[in-house]
């Protein structure tokens, strides 16, 4: 009979690639940065440790705690109960004189419930929204927006279109909705492309993501002015939201202004790169004012 660990480990074929493991054996695997969301990582460190792939699961069979037999092994449930995390070196083997190891590179998302998947995405959108709406909080962890998605911008864009077309006359509401969606999508495309044309080193989708998320303050302004019709209230709110948007976007896209040489856009060209942002956010703010 074949041993269970042989049937479960990935077979080593001639096409397997080996990466030489680090020599430092005191490496703490908890400290290896994964690509998981930070809040999820802190919420569920247990599952992150235990879902280390099939390789880790079989290694546990050799430990004395679960030596009672294969009937007690909880591998079938997909949730290995109480494995101590103090066996980091068990993931390492020596194959052909080269020490290799199975390294944890992310949360195993294959066999999790779909609610967890959706919940993680929603949480990620929420975290980015908070970062955008309150930039000082995001000052330290600006990296969160680096993990881009386009769902948040899409939702924000539709929301702004709906908010603006709600109060419009019936003959114009469809046109307003179309225009808002078109302005945001084409505008983010144009702004990102021209940031690249000016020689900025921004990732394309990251630029789209940041542009879309920075519309969020305008959503707040549109929401407020759906209920408040006083022009004296509306204009300051929309202008404040405009400044808020631009500030948040600049803070994230052009840290070169103050901090580090992020996008590599020179000082003489910062205004050229920022001007389209001012233009697009201003036209959206203006549509909120005259809503």
């Amino acid at each position: 009979m074949q041993r269970p660990e042989d049937s479960l480990t990935t077979p080593l074929t001639s096409t397997s690639q080996f990466i030489q493991a680090d020599d430092d054996d005191d490496l703490d695997e908890e400290a290896i940065p994964g690509f998981a969301h930070p809040t999820i990582g802190s919420d569920t460190p247990q599952s992150a440790v235990f879902d280390k792939g099939k390789g880790r699961a079989t290694e546990q069979l050799a430990t004395p705690t679960s030596a009672a037999g294969p009937a007690r092994t909880p591998t079938l449930s997909g949730n290995i109960g109480s494995m101590p995390s103090g066996v980091p070196s068990s993931a390492r083997r020596t194959i052909g004189g080269v020490q290799v190891e199975n390294r944890f590179t992310g949360v195993d998302t294959l066999d999790e419930p779909i609610t967890t998947t959706i919940g993680r995405d929603l949480l990620s959108i929420y975290t980015k929204l908070v970062q955008v709406l309150y930039p000082p909080k995001g000052g330290a962890s600006r990296e969160v927006l680096r993990d881009w998605d386009l769902w948040g911008p899409f939702v924000l864009c539709l929301l702004l279109g709906i908010l603006l077309s709600l109060k419009a006359p019936a003959s114009q509401s469809l046109g307003i909705f179309t225009s808002v969606v078109a302005i945001i999508s084409l505008g983010s495309l144009v702004v990102t492309i021209q940031a690249k044309l000016l020689g900025g080193r921004v990732s394309f989708f990251q630029g789209l993501c940041v542009f879309g998320y920075c519309v969020a303050p305008l959503n707040v302004a549109a929401f407020v002015s759906t209920f408040v019709h006083l022009i004296y209230v509306r204009v300051p709110i929309a202008l404040a939201a405009w400044a808020w948007c631009v500030w948040g976007k600049i803070l994230r896209t052009f840290p070169a202004v103050n901090f580090l040489d992020g996008t590599r856009i020179e000082q003489q060209r910062i205004l050229l790169a920022v001007y389209p942002l001012l233009l697009f956010y201003f036209i959206l703010a203006w549509m909120i004012i005259i809503q």
């Binding site: 492309i193 021209q194 690249k196 044309l197 000016l198 020689g199 020179e266 003489q268 060209r269 910062i270 205004l271 050229l272």
Partner: peptide, 27 residues
């Protein structure tokens, strides 16, 4: 010299092809 390491020859469909036309400063 705003774009330091611009490749010499780029195709029509690449963004880098158009970078020379945006090599300008604010003033």
């Amino acid at each position: 010299g705003y774009i330091p390491d611009r490749p010499g020859k780029t195709s029509f469909w690449q963004v880098e092809h158009y970078q020379p036309y945006f090599d300008i400063d604010t003033l």
